[in-house]
Design a protein around this nucleic acid. Structure first.
Length: 265
DNA sequence: AGCCAGGGAGTCG
DNA sequence: CGACTCCATGGC
């Protein structure tokens, strides 16, 4: 597992690097330090309490430890174009993040860059989330945001996205949008339902499906991905990615985003 | 100063 | 449908 690439390849905005191979993350109401140790990761709670069984189950889901990435990567390497992307991003895993915070994070991501998205998410937690330590706050529940007005979100400096955040919170809090309902629907239908939220278009919906609901066939297409796909896979994802196109996408995205020279096309 | 950032809504044709 | 503008903020 490549912890750093996994945490900073644009699928999550709730981690910070605190020292070499050590990262601080807040997910839901859990704050942990994660360390890369060889090929493995070591997780410690910031309150120095031992991980409970519930914690372990949670992080197992979060890091998708049930998925065999070794064989998945080997499968991807059967394609000559996909192979260098996989080798470049060896050990990247697609996370399975909590639904509501993934939804809000990617609503905030539109026409925005990663460091600033992380900043807004951090202020959102600090302002409205449950206190974990003096300086660390968890992610607020939909109900805690649903009753707010746009002016209340001013300190976040989220700009025009503030009203989108509130619409999402209201629709989730009211049950109009339900994670279980989304899970019961096929990709296309789930996507449509998500897009009834103001501020959720195809790209944001796909990010939620892939990064929160584990829909591994879904491929979110931003400018970088479109560019990379046009250059590498004009006929679509290679057959060896069948069923896991979204995971293949993550390797391609990470590769494309770091190839600054591609900007000249 | 101007451009861009893991887009989407609103409008016009 | 497609194209086009605006959206609010901050970093470079």
């Amino acid at each position: 597992m490549n912890v750093e690439a996994t945490l900073f390849c644009g699928q999550s905005f709730s981690w910070t690097k605190i020292q070499e191979e050590t990262y601080l993350g807040v997910v839901g109401d859990r704050a942990v330090q994660v360390r890369q140790k060889g090929d493995n990761l070591v997780i410690e709670r910031v309150d120095d309490q031992p991980l409970t069984q519930e914690d372990e189950a949670f992080w197992r889901v979060y890091f998708a430890l049930d998925i065999d990435y070794i064989s998945l990567q080997n499968k991807f390497k059967n394609d000559d174009k996909l192979k260098p992307c996989v080798e470049f991003g060896q050990g990247i895993r697609v996370l399975r993040q909590p639904f509501f915070e993934t939804l809000l994070s990617f609503i905030l991501s539109q026409n925005n860059h990663i460091p600033r998205i992380a900043g807004i998410v951090e202020r959102l937690r600090a302002q409205f989330g449950p206190r974990i330590t003096d300086t660390i706050y968890g992610f607020p529940k939909p109900e805690q945001l649903a009753c707010l007005e746009v002016e209340d979100l001013a300190p976040l400096r989220a700009g025009f996205r503030a009203r989108y955040v509130l619409d999402a919170a209201k629709k989730v809090a009211s049950g109009e949008i339900e994670e279980e309902k989304l899970s019961s629907l096929p990709d296309g239908e789930a996507r449509k339902l998500l897009m009834t939220i103001c501020g959720v278009g195809p790209k944001v919906a796909d990010c939620v499906l892939l990064y929160a609901l584990g829909r591994y066939r879904v491929v979110p297409m931003d400018v970088w991905m479109k560019r990379a796909m046009a250059q590498l896979f004009p006929n679509g994802m290679p057959p060896c990615a069948e069923g896991y196109e979204g995971i293949a996408q993550q390797f391609i995205f990470h590769w494309a985003r770091t190839q600054k020279t591609m900007k000249n096309h």
